[in-house]
Design a protein around this nucleic acid. Sequence first.
DNA 1: CCATATGATTCGGTATCCGAATGATATGAC
DNA 2: GTCATATCATTCGGATACCGAATCATATGG
Lengths: 154, 154
Amino acid sequence: MADASMSSMEWEGSMTQTVAFQLSKLGQLSTALFAARLAPLGLRPRHCAVLELLRGGPLAQLELARAIGVTASVVVDMLDELQSLNAVRRVRDTEDRRRQLIELTPTGRDLGRQAFAAATETDAELLSGLDPAQLTALRSVLGAMAAERGLTGR
Amino acid sequence: MADASMSSMEWEGSMTQTVAFQLSKLGQLSTALFAARLAPLGLRPRHCAVLELLRGGPLAQLELARAIGVTASVVVDMLDELQSLNAVRRVRDTEDRRRQLIELTPTGRDLGRQAFAAATETDAELLSGLDPAQLTALRSVLGAMAAERGLTGR
DNA sequence: CCATATGATTCGGTATCCGAATGATATGAC
DNA sequence: GTCATATCATTCGGATACCGAATCATATGG
């Protein structure tokens, strides 16, 4: 019942054992591993949320920004990059000529599929040391935390 | 037994549901929340691993770099910052005058304690929506993943 | 028709990391 | 001892990812 780890002394707690710290570090690791697998496609992790969101149909840039949780200027950069890969097109909204409707090209749709494969491979790499029970628990908890905060993007 | 989520069609999977993706995003969130709580102390997340490692006694800069998992030049930057806070001292190693032994000052020790408090608060914020079972599972899995890769630092 | 709001863009700034080049010191071959 | 080589810290330039303020075009409502 008693946890044996803190035996007797009032010892300063370990920061590296906090969830905040480990989540930061593992997030950084995940990003790096994912980026490495995306690199051959010319993609970077931040592009993936865009590719995924656009599967459902065209969106304006501000809609993308809000969905992903970044500012409008970041979206401009990402779309410039995706456009240079021919993954997306900007189309003026005829009903409101200020808006650009962003639509996925067939190339973009294909890149999305390959990116998903890369994500799956990264998962395998990241989770190789876990037993099935841990894996289930992790997925469930991360899903809960992400959903709770509406983290679609990045 | 059969997973109901992929019913009939060959539908492109969801990248935002992969562990790699969610871990990236949640790691980013953790870092931001932790940074916000550290800001009043003049610290940033990356300083914390240094403060913690030095609790055990002085270390050379390359030893810090290896323990934390960053390059030597990053350590130089972090130590410049910590030094300007009077949190650490650089002391030439008399046995090898190329080395700088980094030692924690009383101020640094105190900042470490306050940083730990900030990390604990961040955990509370981050984990508020989880039930005890999920919390236990998360800690166990993150601990396993972090330990497996020797992630001390940030 | 004009004031104001909104969408996209540009520009400059911040934070974090890396790798290559540099200078000081140590070490080992001879 | 001396010289080549290795190692430690540092500096410098570059990459990535983000933000916020300013700008321009277009809409909208009085």
